[in-house]
């Protein structure tokens, strides 16, 4: 459903993605693993249009989206759960869900609005995250870190995505909440949502994903089923380091 072909992305002169080729299969959880600074977040940013790639192609269900602006990519039902949550500080929980739920990119908007397939809306999001329902009148900057992460996921879900891109959704979360996120990902998969899970937390990703890409220095260096990756000691030590638990302090 998503094919990335020889993608090159720069920040100014800095060549971050140096020819990434990878794919996400429909209805599966695909993980991208790698150490800090190998370009995982840049890959997410290029996918959703925030840092357009300078060369290469991104094809989503036969549509080339490489150079589309972010709101149009969002309109094609690709949603992002960004690293660091990026909650709007002055918006209430309810407003977050309202702007994310009702807006559609102009390209896809016309055809997709009519299509009433069962999916995520505000009510379902509140069912899954009762805590957000309790806090619906609170502003983004009044929420706890865990609540903000739930809201970041909820904000992506109300757009009813076909592909959910999650950039380190477990970062800085307590173990119990990490387990919750894992459960939610499996549920989304069962409902037919495709997921791209970008993680530093290798053990979490390997447990959750159906397919794994390993990234190093702006390239994909290994792609396989998670079991095969886990069995490959060289890859594990060379590119992932020893799986570790992140410190409880959020880094941003």
């Amino acid at each position: 459903m998503l094919n990335v072909l020889d993608l090159h992305t720069y920040y100014g002169d800095s060549h971050v993605l140096q020819g990434v080729t990878m794919h996400v299969d429909s209805g599966r959880v695909t993980a991208v693993l790698g150490r800090n600074g190998v370009g995982k977040t840049t890959l997410c940013r290029s996918l959703v249009g925030l840092t357009p790639a300078r060369a290469g192609r991104i094809v989503f269900n036969d549509t080339e989206i490489t150079r589309l602006p972010p709101h149009q990519i969002c309109g094609l039902r690709i949603s992002l759960v960004p690293q660091g949550r990026r909650i709007f500080r002055s918006l209430t929980v309810e407003e977050h869900l309202a702007i994310a739920g009702r807006t559609r990119g102009s390209l896809a908007g016309v055809s997709e609005k009519r299509e009433h397939r069962p999916g995520w809306d505000v009510r379902k999001v509140y069912d899954v995250f009762p805590r957000l329902s309790e806090r619906r009148g609170h502003r983004g900057d009044e929420l706890s870190g865990g609540e903000q992460q739930m809201l970041a996921i909820a904000r992506a879900l109300v757009a009813n995505p076909v592909l959910l891109v999650m950039d380190e959704p477990t970062e800085g979360l307590a173990p119990m909440l990490v387990a919750e996120v894992g459960k939610l990902i499996r549920r989304l998969k069962d409902e037919g949502t495709s997921i791209l899970l970008v993680e530093q937390n290798a053990s979490f990703a390997v447990k959750t994903a159906d397919y794994v890409h390993v990234m190093s220095k702006g390239r994909i260096v290994h792609s396989s089923e998670p079991a095969a990756l886990w069995a490959n000691g060289d890859i594990r030590t060379q590119f992932l380091g020893v799986p570790r638990v992140d410190p409880p302090v959020a880094r941003d």
Binding site: P69, H71, L91, E95, G105, S106
Partner: peptide, 25 residues
Amino acid sequence: TLIGAKLRATVDDPEMAAATGINVA
């Protein structure tokens, strides 16, 4: 209003607003 919420979202974080489907331009 919803327009106001979109406006404030754009003020708070223009990138994330765009990724949420708002036409920032």
